[in-house]
Simulated scan of single mutants.
Amino acid sequence: MTSKTTGSTPPEDLTPEPPALPEVNTVTADDIRASLKAGFADFLARPFMSGFFGLFYAVFGILFVWCLLWLGKIWMIIPAVIAFPLVAPFAAAGLYEMSRRMQAGESFGWSDILTVMANQRKREMGWMAFVTLFILWVWFYQFRTVLVIVLQDSSFSDLDGFLNTVFFTPEGWTFLAIGTCVGAFLSAVLFSVTVVAMPMLLDREMDFVSAMITSVRVVKENPVVMLTWAAIITVTMLLSLVPAFLGLIFTLPILGHTTWHLYQRAVSPVQPSA
């Protein structure tokens, strides 16, 4: 029996190819220095608007710790303080937009920046927030698990008692050693998937999985430099917490602006379509 169909045979696979991932560049210590210089310049260009984001972050930290003390969740203070710098990239979305506009020579006001931040809930940034919160949940859960296993016979009636047990008893040292190892691993994971993913999602139309993969590739291709950047962020943020979180008013904006410029150096720009 002959076929009645005519014409050319359609292709078997009509599934469009996924877009190529952005090209990752080699990053050096000079790039970090240049990015810090540019980030500081952005802060000086708009100090009050930049400082607002740092102030908001600092006030949130103060209220969060106060709530833990009020609720009697003394054990959560240490993991909360350690995790606090890890959510800074997400909190700095407005700073990325400010740096982007200054770099492009665009004028902007409060409404422009806040509107862009509000619109991120409709884009892939929301999924990155979910990833961040999930990793933080794992961090708090493992911290509580190790606390119960290692310090099961200890009671903490106040913050001083908790800190004394953790830092001045053999059980506390064991607890710190285990918690530090697990925390370092989770921190490395979170840093790797977010370090350039956050500014990239604000800058480009792409899915959050591709952004995370690109971020991990940046860290993988530049391990020493990116881990140095991670250490700079961690030490700076932790030191900023000492004066009642108020150091964040200055350090968070500078680090946020710097992250934008480092992202620009670490990931090649979008190539115009032919």
Rank of each mutant, 00 (worst) to 15 (best):
A188D: 08
W137M: 06
D31Q: 09
P19V: 12
D112V: 13
S99W: 06
A88P: 06
G94Y: 04
T26K: 15
I113W: 07
L36P: 03
S192F: 11
G256P: 10
S215L: 10
V235Y: 07
V65C: 01
L63P: 01
S107E: 15
T5H: 05
G172S: 13
S3W: 04
E23Q: 10
I254Y: 05
T228V: 13
R144N: 15
G51W: 11
P22Q: 12
G126K: 15
G39L: 01
L86A: 14
P223I: 09
P223M: 10
Y57E: 02
Q142N: 12
A38Y: 01
Q103P: 00
Q120M: 13
A92N: 14
V87F: 13
L147H: 15
V218C: 12
F168R: 15
W75G: 01
F53G: 01
R121Q: 13
L14W: 04
T214G: 12
T9K: 01
N164Y: 03
A45G: 05
E205P: 01
T2Y: 01
V270C: 00
T169I: 12
G161Y: 05
W260K: 10
I254L: 07
T258I: 04
I249Q: 02
F43W: 11
K37A: 15
W260L: 12
P223G: 12
Q264V: 08
F156T: 03
V27L: 07
D112R: 12
S154D: 08
I62A: 10
F64R: 01
T6H: 11
I249K: 07
P272A: 09
W229T: 03
M128G: 08
S3G: 02
A92V: 08
F208I: 11
A80R: 03
P19M: 09
M76K: 03
A104Q: 05
M212E: 09
T236Q: 04
V131W: 15
I233Q: 11
Q120V: 08
S111F: 13
L227G: 06
F56C: 03
L241G: 05
V81H: 02
I178N: 02
L238P: 00
F185C: 07
P223S: 12
L176N: 05
F43H: 07
I135A: 04
L239P: 03
S107L: 14
L136M: 14
Q142K: 10
T214R: 10
F191S: 05
I135F: 09
V242R: 02
L95G: 03
G183Q: 10
A104I: 00
V224Y: 12
T165S: 09
T26E: 13
W110K: 10
E17M: 06
F175R: 02
A93Q: 14
Q271W: 00
V270N: 09
S154T: 12
M226Y: 06
A211Q: 03
W137N: 06
M212N: 06
D42R: 04
L252N: 02
S187V: 09
P18W: 05
A92Q: 14
L262Y: 07
A197Y: 09
A230E: 11
A20I: 10
L14P: 00
T115G: 11
N222S: 11
R144D: 15
E12C: 00
F40I: 14
T236G: 14
K4H: 08
S99D: 05
D31W: 06
D207W: 03
P85S: 05
P47D: 13
A129M: 13
A244S: 00
V242L: 10
S210D: 12
V150A: 10
V27N: 08
F156H: 08
G7V: 02
T214A: 14
Q264R: 15
E106R: 04
S273F: 01
